[in-house]
Nucleic acid binder design. Structure first.
Lengths: 187, 187
DNA sequence: CTATTATATATGTAAAGTCATATAAAAGCG
DNA sequence: CGCTTTTATATGACTTTACATATATAATAG
């Protein structure tokens, strides 16, 4: 359960509601390398409260639904500290498009080029989104220790998207350059 | 269920048992961008047989456990063809190490450098493994249409691992170069 | 000669992730 | 004035993934 550790980390910054955690903290930071939906975050928070890793304060609001503000406990800090010292497994990638490309020889070139173009638009959008995140670049004197690590993870996100785009260019070039005698059966 | 489509694709090459599918076909190809364990593959094959996408032939063996050889049916080919034409979602990355790095400011530099070194060893091993896969490089005349796409997905795997290694170098350089006045509280 | 690895399939269980939907009311938009 | 978005939490239902374990035998390694 890396999700609970991500949440613990975010709660060290400031106490938050599940809603804020999801929409303000999580989705703008960790979601780039660890996705979770609203249901998962709420359920994980409930489990963490039972563990004693976080505590809840109910804020009654009259004009709004009540807020449950979660904050990290000493036990939670301890658990986060422990987890931060453990070795992490290598990343797991789920790439349906790569599965498709692996078997793309059965498709005609126009369809493949269309698939490539769509993937490119998606990755361009992701890259643009990353580049709008306001964290000072490496070397900037405004970068403190905390933000240095934020910046490093962002650098990885940007590097990944650039690698995808470069690869998509390569795919396109290869498909466009394929001679007919490389053509097998197609669907 | 992209796994069943991956299996369909592999079964277009040749009929196979679940065992062969897992240990000979899947793990040496698609596992790099779509992981699945033995239990999942066996259960997915059973579901696909119920769907009519594959059919089974029982080979009775005396000295060995019996083999169930799966082959793709016309309905399976049709489904694969349909799926190959659909647009695929962007990749999902689960990167526990990136979560850890995001909160690494709480760790001392030596621990961080150790984490980085361990990740590097893992990625170096993956890269070496990819580079041992015997698929002719792009441009090689021995590369037919089918293998061209295999090679392209391999190129992506190699590019990914190189991007990771470059990023780990960057992380290491940044951590080594951090001055004490960038140091915050640590655990 | 024993222990491990390879061949081959199956299942129980739990954790994690996805998708949809329910409730409730304010604020903003056209 | 009605429609959509934002704020805020909750749960049902399902699928997918992961981890462990069971069975059985041959071949290989030490």
């Amino acid at each position: 359960m890396s999700l609970s550790h991500a949440i613990l980390g975010l709660l060290t910054i400031t106490p938050m509601t599940g809603y804020e955690l999801k929409n303000e903290a999580f989705d703008t930071t960790i979601a780039h390398f660890w996705q979770a939906d609203q249901a998962q975050i709420y359920r994980t928070l409930a489990a963490m409260a039972e563990n004693g890793w976080v505590k809840v304060e109910l804020e009654i609001q009259e004009d709004r639904p009540n807020r449950k503000v979660y904050s990290i406990t000493e036990a939670g800090r301890e658990e986060l500290r422990r987890w931060l010292h453990t070795e992490q497994p290598l990343p797991i990638h789920r790439e349906p498009f790569l599965v498709q490309m692996f078997f793309a020889s059965a498709l005609d070139d126009a369809t493949i080029l269309d698939h490539i173009a769509r993937q490119r638009r998606g990755h361009e959008a992701r890259l643009a989104q990353y580049q709008r995140i306001p964290v000072p670049p490496l070397g900037d004197p405004a970068l403190d220790r905390t933000r240095t690590f934020w910046r490093l993870t962002l650098e990885m996100g940007i590097a990944m998207e650039r690698a995808y785009l470069a690869w998509l260019d390569q795919c396109e070039a290869v498909v466009r350059g394929m001679r007919d005698d490389e053509a097998g059966e197609r669907a």
